[in-house]
Amino acid sequence: MTELLTIRNLGVAYGGLLAVDDVELVIHANEVMGLIGPNGAGKTTTIDAICGFIPHAVGTIALGGQAIQQLAPHERARSGLVRTFQSVELFDDLTVRENLVVAAQAPRWYSLVFDAVRPNRARSFTAVDRAIELTEIAALSTLRPNELSHGQRRIVGVARALAASPALVLLDEPAAGLDPQETERLGALIHRLPSEGIGVLLVDHDMALVLEVCDRITVLDFGRVIASGTPDEIRSNDVVIAAYLGSSSE
């Protein structure tokens, strides 16, 4: 299997606190990787660092063999590394479809002049249409984010990431606050992404979802990787049980 994302010695320090400490992570193509851990373990900080939102992060990050740690966040997104946010963060002034369109289309140097003369509103985007189809949100596409339910907003957040034609999506707690049916549909979607050529890094607290859809799972605690393996290995790992899963999953 080819390595899609390769992370070596990733570190983020805030003052004296090491929020992420020497993390190694490899995600293969066509793989769903889970990233779990207790609150404050550094999961979101890891995603922030991978996507370029923490300028002082150290370590090497390679996407498809290309080092990307020097790139700005939007450049990483355009090269195929696209994230969602724990707090969803849709563009409230745009419709659902427009939210996807801005992610799908990179401007060119002449765009400003072209747009000033001929607005190209009606242009179709295959990536947008595909993302809408995969996430089954066609009925929502002309609505504004403030007209959506919480669950719908989350799924639109995922759709926006998919519209950017990612090689790897990093989903930050996509199931938080979803009802059981929505979670089930989300699980099916995540499961399907590798066959669409999209790798997944999934951060979530819903253990049933994570254990079901992930091919491999990495466990963080206090910013360090404490375990890594298949769902079955993680489920029975004593260190993980002590740090995170607790006795309820005996």
Binding site: C51, G52, F53, A72, P73, H74, E75, A77, R78, V82, R83, T84, F85, E89, L90, F91, D92, D93, L94, N99, V102, A103, A106, P107, R160, A161, A164
Partner: peptide, 16 residues
Amino acid sequence: LAVRGNERAAAAAGID
């Protein structure tokens, strides 16, 4: 408008 709404989300969506 995306940048006006949310700069971090805009960057994550590939907007410079």
